[in-house]
Amino acid sequence: MAPPYMGILHSAFWTLIFSMPVFIVRRLMQSVLVLCFMSLLVFVGVYAIGNPVDILINPQADQADIERAIAALGLDKPLWQQYLIFLKQALAGDLGKSFAYNIPAIQLILERMPATLELALAATGMAVFLGIPLGLWAGLKPDSWPGKLIMTGSILGFSLPTFWVGLMLIMLFAVELGWLPSNGRGPTTELLGIPVSFLSWEGVRHLILPATNLALFKLSLIIRLTRAGTREALLQDYVKFARAKGLSSTRVVGVHVLKNIMIPIVTVIGLEFGSVIAFAIVTESIFAWPGMGKLIIDSINVLDRPVIVAYLLIIVSLFILINLAVDIVYSLLDPRVRISEAKG
């Protein structure tokens, strides 16, 4: 006879199968709704608060050009029609030309995107590869002085503003010691048609300071998560049993503890990747890293409005995609989320 829990497993399986598409459809609908709302916000910001003629048309253009542009953008039409035109153009990937660079705004942003992604990935990698061992150490030996030092460091990493730490890094390693460059991306190498820095030594040297700066906050987060997870895992029966079996402590920590604390850590890394891209705005500005973040700040400062509008729409879409992906992955990992959402 089947054991009694088979029935529960069986119904859980069917709940999973049925709730999955409902959950994804709900999330997708919500994402589309957020995107509409954000595009409306950007539209209202550009068209209703300011004068769109000033915002979207190059002030250096002559009168005939301005009138042609007004007609082309449909600025003589009612506001709701303008919004539809704006949406249609945005969907077609046409958000105007940059005043400063005189190339399509979207193309400009997409050209800068690899630099930002490289920086964000380098920072995330750094946070993971330093954070997990340091967090393990602090969790295994919480009362030793290195353990305490690691925790104090992580508290500082949380409370210090990113830009201030960046300035201190420049002051110390670029100005005083002269070890590392503080400015720009250095030479890039093509990898599958995308320019990257990490393949040449000079590029890596340029990458170290900005990546460290961007990594610090996430590093503190991962240290704390790993430490808390380790301390909790050490008290569990499976660790005690592994010890009782006579396994070496390397194996207990490396296999039994680490495997079990990886789930929350991986989730958080995924969740936080979006915020790494957002904070890259600050780091890129400090280290003159030629990514999307520096581009938006430069564009705001010179009032290059087509680029501002395009950036806002692209970054919002990017975030909605990241959130959607994280939600779906999360629901796959944790059935409770999925079931409560399907009911709700």
């Binding site: 910001g45 957002a278 600050v282 806002l312």
Partner: peptide, 19 residues
């Protein structure tokens, strides 16, 4: 929920870029 899914700095940047 929707607002908290965006980092604070990004929301502030969007608003100040528009205003």
């Amino acid at each position: 929920d929707i607002q908290l899914s965006f980092p604070a700095i990004l929301i502030a940047l969007i608003l100040l870029a528009l205003l």
